[in-house]
């Protein structure tokens, strides 16, 4: 076999992929040809290292590391869910408080307006005024509910 033919098949020789006759011809050629032998040795050095890598094992504590990460991920998820719940409750409470304060202010304002109207005898139908305010308040709650 000539050098060019051998060089084309070095890796297949390394892996034993060739038929018996070709394996023998290349083996004989390598014994006689230092140039091809040098090429083969370089190739074999790298491929031997690949074989070493292919026999390596993961570290013994890999399971502990995985277990730890799973636990961390789970606690993070719980924390996020808890924060989201607290956030929702806080927003709802703030809105309810704002509505409550708004209705208090509204009631005080109407009572004062009634007082002024009564003083000036412009508006003496207090019941009518309260009804108007209640209707307004209900509408406000409906709008709030829609949102």
């Amino acid at each position: 076999m000539k050098c060019a033919q051998v060089k084309n098949k070095l890796i297949f020789y390394y892996y034993g992929d060739l038929d018996e006759s070709q394996m023998r011809q290349i083996r004989e050629h390598l014994e006689q040809c230092p140039t091809c032998r040098r090429e083969y040795n370089k190739l074999a050095l790298a491929l031997d290292y690949a074989n070493t890598e292919a026999q390596m094992s993961a570290s013994g504590d890999l399971w502990n590391k995985i277990n730890q990460r799973i636990a961390q991920t789970s606690s993070k998820k719980v924390k996020i869910l808890w924060l989201r719940s607290v956030e929702t409750i806080a927003v709802a409470a703030a809105i309810a408080l704002a509505v409550f304060i708004g209705s208090l202010i509204g009631r005080v304002y109407i009572e004062q307006s009634y007082q002024v109207a009564n003083d000036h005898e412009i508006y003496d139908d207090y019941e009518n005024l309260i009804e108007t305010f209640s209707n307004f308040n209900q509408t406000a709650y409906l709008v709030f509910d829609d949102n």
């Binding site: 292919a54 390596m56 993961a58 890999l62 590391k65 995985i66 990460r69």
Partner: peptide
């Protein structure tokens, strides 16, 4: 774990990186 570790080694050729990859896959 060892099978996946070797597989990852075939691409990264670095045992620390390979272990990280295996951890990620199992998680």
């Amino acid at each position: 774990k060892d099978k996946l570790f070797r597989l990852a080694m075939g691409f990264v050729h670095d045992s620390f990186l390979a272990e990280d990859i295996v951890q990620d896959v199992f998680v």
